[in-house]
């Protein structure tokens, strides 16, 4: 059974093409690491999955139903959540309000992620529950954004630049959380530059270059492709 099917996906900003025929299938609960240098189309690909890329061609289906061309709110209601680059917490709402406003059961009625559950995974958010979103540190904002996405009880979670700009200790907390999410059976696409940590949490590694997928395989398979790592990720 396939959760997400992407076939021949092409994405455009006006006349400029940024995605050149992407094919990808994700099973329920599978964790995908999406790698690539800056400007290769990773964020655009995630945006295309949540209806935020204005012009698309090809097919995107969730649980067998096409979601291409649907409004972002409808895609979110169908079970796709995104943790965007730059976080995007609502600064004028408190931590609790940021979480509660997003709360809803999954399309199948599951409600694994409640406010208490999210606060138990992120104790720092529980400590800062009454603070405004704009009063949080970068790490706390990232935790809040992940927690907020989990409050929608998604089938598919997209995380863009999971640990970018975070202190190493905070980044470790995020990696730990990704492990919990994986154990919960939520399918995930994680974009980050930390190949080592991604290899530990991902089932599959995918490398993107110039709007195309140039490698798909397990972390072990990627580790054996030294030239690929150096060419596309600058890892030696």
């Amino acid at each position: 059974m396939t959760l997400l099917t992407v076939e021949g996906l092409q994405g455009f900003y006006g006349a400029s093409q940024v995605l050149h025929g992407i094919d990808l299938q994700i099973s329920p609960g599978e964790q995908i690491a999406l790698l690539g240098r800056n400007g290769m189309g990773k964020t655009s690909f995630l945006r295309s999955l949540v209806g935020a890329l204005p012009k698309l061609a090809g097919e995107v289906a969730l649980n067998g139903k096409s979601i291409r061309g649907r409004l972002p709110e409808h895609i979110a209601q169908a079970g796709v959540a995104i943790v965007p680059e730059g976080r995007g917490v609502f600064g004028s709402l408190s931590v609790i309000e940021n979480l509660v406003m997003a709360a809803r059961p999954s399309p199948t009625g599951k409600c694994q992620w409640t406010l208490d559950r999210v606060l138990s995974v992120f104790p720092r958010l529980a400590q800062r529950r009454g603070h405004g979103g704009h009063q949080l540190s970068g790490g706390e904002q990232q935790m809040l954004t992940i927690g907020r996405a989990l409050m929608t009880n998604p089938d598919l979670l997209l995380i863009d630049e999971a640990t970018e700009g975070l202190a190493p200790l905070v980044a470790q907390e995020i990696w730990k959380t990704l492990g919990i999410i994986r154990s919960e059976g939520i399918a995930t696409i994680v974009v980050d530059k930390d190949v080592k940590n991604l290899s530990q949490v991902a089932d599959r590694m995918v490398i993107m270059s110039k709007g195309k997928l140039v490698f798909t395989g397990t972390p072990v398979e990627l580790a054996g492709q030294g030239d690929l790592l150096e060419r596309h990720l600058g890892v030696q």
């Binding site: 709110e73 309000e97 940021n98 509660v100 406003m101 709360a103």
Partner: peptide
């Protein structure tokens, strides 16, 4: 209420609110 939070969230960032499934 959550309605008020949604309204404020849509004011702060419409796209982000939509990506959370809020019918802005």
């Amino acid at each position: 209420s959550p309605f008020g939070d949604s309204l404020t969230a849509a004011r702060d960032n419409e796209r982000r609110a939509m990506s959370l499934g809020i019918p802005v």
